[in-house]
């Protein structure tokens, strides 16, 4: 982006690296983890084909209270949004909304992913107290 000097050009673009890392990791997490959650919690559980932890209050809070599960849920829910934000912003560009390239659009989309991360952390910390039981 910066063409006014060699010193600026040769600096490693750490923020760029961070966003690309989050984009790539979000894609991997969504690819590897999401389908089984949708299948088990969204289809098999509600249909009564298998027993699932979220079908009963006591089993659900026991698993959601586990600190490792909380950390897992944070990664599962929050990180893919950095992938989704990028994809959906460029989907809008491709579908004829050039405004999606603008800085305000970037703030809305990537900022949205940051907000969802914050909300997820808040929900995980306030819903069920951390317990090792």
């Amino acid at each position: 982006m910066n063409h006014d000097g060699h010193a600026k050009n040769s600096r490693t673009a750490y923020t760029h690296l961070l966003w690309w890392f989050l984009f790539a990791q979000g894609g991997v997490i969504a690819a590897i983890l999401v389908p089984i959650h949708v299948l088990v919690q969204g289809i098999l559980g509600p249909l009564g084909i298998v027993r699932v932890v979220d079908r009963h209050y006591d089993t659900w809070i026991r698993i959601v209270g586990n600190p490792i599960v909380k950390l897992y849920l944070l990664v599962l829910i929050a990180v893919p949004f950095f992938h989704f934000a990028h994809r959906l912003r460029y989907l809008l560009v491709d579908l004829g909304v050039p405004a999606a390239r603008s800085v305000p659009a970037q703030v809305i989309f990537y900022g949205g992913a940051v907000v969802i991360t914050a909300v997820t952390i808040w929900v995980l910390l306030t819903t069920v107290p951390i317990s090792f039981g």
């Binding site: 959650h37 919690q41 829910i77 929900v123």
Partner: peptide
């Protein structure tokens, strides 16, 4: 990305 995002938001709501 859109349907997956909606479903994950639902999961957050479920929690």
């Amino acid at each position: 990305a859109l349907p997956m995002a909606l479903w994950l938001l639902w999961l957050l709501y479920e929690i």
